[in-house]
């Protein structure tokens, strides 16, 4: 008897655990994976990237890139040839028009989803790519367009790469290689090639990221030297060739001293010169709506009981901000 009545309780606990692990949102949806479809789409993407970079694409390079055996790749490539998505060209593999559209569609899904994760969720930056790699294969066109509309039809992913339009348009790579700059030029990193991985990692480890501003010094002994955010950096020629730079329009150049807003204490004033890229999405917009834009004067007005948050006087209004926000707002002293 007792055990019979324990069932409802058990049921309740199950419901709770179900909620805990279900992660019901679309963004964490686990998929029934169709591995053949995924492999084909990965191949298309990979071929597209090879063509984009003008490098040779064949079975071997694909199997290395996708971490599969030659046989696996060959069988999928055969199927893709049957479906007229790719065509063999001597020893190389090339995309047909329909294959290129397909590849761009997958790239669009990938970048849209990364943008979604960046703007609309709290998912850690490191997980964006991996989640998008899964998600891109499981989206219908309608779902993708709904997603795009929901996040304001973005045209750039959070890494600064352009998102192909629904019709498969993509802007040409702008800018020039870092190594082609003239001494004294000021520019912004707009693209870091993520292949090969070891070079990408070594670039990233030197603190170079998309959007960082650099002042070019010159090339000495095959070493490319420049200031990045006022820090002296040097890269090998090979590394520098994997970085594209350009003067992004509307981008503000800040060279010179700046401090974080969090460094001010009660009564001190400053003038905002920028907001870090890592404050993004709704959070960034809300701060700007409240008047936290470059050029605004700001004064620390009040300290809360525990010292965080602080209240700031901004354009005649008192607004409380947390330290993890003010660390990402740059100011110059007044």
């Amino acid at each position: 008897m007792i055990y019979l009545l324990l069932i409802p309780l058990f049921f309740l606990i199950i419901i709770f655990i179900f909620f805990l692990f279900k992660k019901g949102k679309v963004l964490f949806r686990k998929f029934k994976t169709n591995s053949e479809k995924i492999l084909q789409e990965d191949i298309l993407k990979s071929v597209y990237n090879h063509q984009y970079q003008n490098s040779v694409c064949n079975i071997e390079s694909l199997s290395e890139k996708l971490n599969k055996t030659n046989q696996q790749i060959q069988s999928s490539v055969d199927k893709l040839i049957d479906s007229k998505h790719i065509e063999p060209d001597n020893k190389e593999i090339r995309l047909t028009d329909s294959g290129k559209n397909y590849a761009l569609k997958i790239i669009r899904f990938h970048r849209l989803y990364e943008k979604f994760l960046a703007d609309k969720t709290n998912v850690n930056e490191k997980k964006w790519h991996q989640l998008a790699e899964e998600f891109e294969h499981n989206l219908t066109n309608e779902e993708a367009e709904k997603l795009a509309a929901q996040i304001g039809n973005p045209v750039f992913d959070p890494h600064g790469d352009p998102i192909p339009s629904p019709k498969g348009e993509l802007p040409e790579v702008k800018g020039m290689r870092l190594s082609e700059l003239n001494p004294g030029d000021i520019s912004v990193v707009i693209h870091i090639e993520d292949e090969p991985d070891n070079i990408y990692q070594s670039i990233v480890n030197k603190g170079i990221y998309n959007g960082i501003q650099i002042r070019f010094l010159g090339t000495f002994n095959n070493e490319v030297s420049f200031y990045a955010n006022e820090k002296l950096c040097s890269l090998s020629l090979e590394e520098a060739n994997n970085i594209n730079v350009g003067l992004l329009k509307l981008e503000k150049i800040h060279l010179g001293d700046f401090k974080k807003l969090s460094s001010l204490s009660v009564g001190q004033r400053g003038k905002i010169i920028g907001i870090a890229k890592s404050l993004r999405g709704q959070q960034r917009r809300r701060l700007m709506d409240l008047g936290i834009v470059p050029g605004t004067e700001i004064e620390v007005e009040l300290e809360s009981m525990s010292g965080d948050p602080l209240a700031y006087k901004i354009r005649g209004t008192t607004i409380a901000l947390r330290k993890n926000q003010t660390e990402k707002i740059y100011i110059e002293s007044l």
């Binding site: 805990l20 703007d119 998912v123 999405g281 901000l321």
Partner: peptide, 17 residues
Amino acid sequence: KTLLKGETSSFSLELPP
């Protein structure tokens, strides 16, 4: 830390006069 980990969060608090 669990269920709502992925939801967006932002902070702003105005102190009206």
